[in-house]
């Protein structure tokens, strides 16, 4: 069965979720990845949404925002933001899953300002829950398209902290857990390498060359010694994704 680079990205991301984990889920790509995981290898994972919802699996009816009625119908918990974000803050969330406008070498994510915050070139929407997810979840996963203007050496503004300046700077800032475990893109999977925690090439998707991934990255991309090819989607994974994407939005 054929598949698109974005489908590969979503399926690669879904494999980062382990069965039984508590997963904080953002909309769109993260939600699709959670849906594939829940329908394949992680049927006992539970997804939390920042508006106060928990679900065992994504809704079957189509919906546009996490607050739409289909996401609420059949929820495993419908509560408030204090209670749901509190699970993160209390260290009870294994994995956080966010998209990003701009990410840097140390996995810091900017969704606030391009340019000087006092007079920004572009005012982006802001954190939402992303800064909290990045600061307090057990492992952070970032999923986004791989473009040099989006994977940059250093973000203008750290909305959501990754490994900050690398090395021990994250724990020195007072963050005693978490950090970026992977950036999953339509070309590859990047993971923190060595004591610096700089994000390097860990796996390349089928049909993508190493040079393509290097060229599409805004920092000199180190390659892990054991970097190989991402296993292509299985029939079961593709079927799971297409069951939650009947319109083919991600194809």
């Amino acid at each position: 069965m054929g598949y698109s680079p974005r489908e590969m990205m979503i399926i690669a991301a879904s494999r980062e979720i382990r069965d039984g984990e508590v997963v904080f889920v953002g909309m769109r790509l993260p939600l699709a990845a959670f849906g594939v995981a829940a329908r394949t290898h992680a049927p006992n994972a539970i997804g939390l949404f920042e508006n106060g919802l928990a679900r065992f699996a994504p809704a079957v009816e189509p919906f546009d925002t996490m607050s739409d009625p289909p996401n609420i119908h059949g929820a495993a918990w419908a509560t408030g933001m204090v209670q749901i974000m509190g699970r993160l803050h209390a260290g009870q969330v294994d994995v956080g899953f966010i998209g990003g406008a701009e990410v840097d070498r140390h996995g810091n994510v900017n969704t606030s300002y391009v340019g000087d915050p006092a007079r920004p070139r572009v005012k982006l929407p802001g954190s939402g829950g992303a800064a909290d997810i990045a600061a307090t979840c057990g492992r952070l996963l970032v999923i986004m398209d791989h473009e040099p203007k989006r994977l940059v050496e250093r973000v203008d503004f750290v909305t959501s902290p990754g490994w900050l300046d690398g090395g021990e700077s994250r724990s020195a800032a007072g963050l005693d857990r978490g950090g970026v475990a992977a950036i999953i893109t339509n070309l590859a999977i990047l993971r923190p390498m060595g004591p610096d925690h700089g994000m390097g090439l860990a796996s390349i998707h089928p049909g993508v060359s190493r040079q393509q991934a290097i060229d599409a990255t805004g920092w000199p991309l180190a390659v892990a010694p054991d970097a190989g090819e991402t296993p292509p989607p299985t029939e079961a994974e593709l079927a799971a994704l297409r069951a939650i994407d009947p319109e083919g939005f991600w194809r």
Binding site: M85, L88, H89, S112, P117, S127, A131, D132, A135, T136, F157, V158, T159, S160, P161, L164, R170, A173, G174, L175, D176
Partner: peptide, 10 residues
């Protein structure tokens, strides 16, 4: 008092 936002430019 919270620990979230440590490390953020917010």
């Amino acid at each position: 008092p919270v620990r979230s936002l440590l490390g953020s430019d917010i």
